[in-house]
Amino acid sequence: MQIELEKIFERPRTLRPVTTHYCPGCGHGIVARLLAETIDELGIRERTVGIAPVGCSVLLYNYLDVDMYEAAHGRAPAVATGCKRVNPKLVVFSYQGDGDFASIGTAEAVHVAARGEKITTIFINNAVYGMTGGQMAPTTLEGQKTTTSPLGRNLDQTGYPIRMAELLTTLDGAAYIARVSVNNPKSIIQAKKAIRKAFETQIRGLGYSMVEILSQCPTAWHLSPIEATKWVEEKMKPYYPLGEFKTPEEG
């Protein structure tokens, strides 16, 4: 006897059936899936173009079944701008890490928001340079040990971690700015909502949208995956508060 089973969970169409290069416990894979689900739900796969620059972000083009650019370090917002200006019908997003978005590409990050460019940035903040082996990032927390802050980040020497969401919120061209995390199921659901809102903001032509995602990097943090999720909760969230900083409804 054959039983008809209702399908209640499946791989999103936009997510390719491949194994990722991400480490166990990494947040990137979760975000890739959230992106794929969002693109599917909005029905925009066939007009979406992504940009993945240097860092752990770069191989996103192997995981998402959409047209993609690989861009120079920090320059994804500029590449996104060029693409969108040629073909405004496209839905264009950049997928950037903290080195990319908050350090080498800060000028592009600030100006893409200031221009109100109708693109979306997914910004992965894991407080460390993952791809290159765990060096200090502009988002590394005070006292956090990395391979280039071996005694812990010293604020006297290196200044303070940058809060990109708050920074960009001050710019009039930014229409939707939120910070979320992917360290527990509830946060992941929130993150998905924010990503969706960001894409909708772009599709409605309201301006620039950015979602900062606090993401765990167990490898560079030298923690187990479970410990890493706790570290996001206990260390990152106090410095990087979650929330929607700017939404189009507020004007």
Partner: peptide, 9 residues
């Protein structure tokens, strides 16, 4: 880099 994006489109 805008050129890069625009040429690619």
């Amino acid at each position: 880099n805008m050129l890069f994006g625009a040429a690619g489109a």
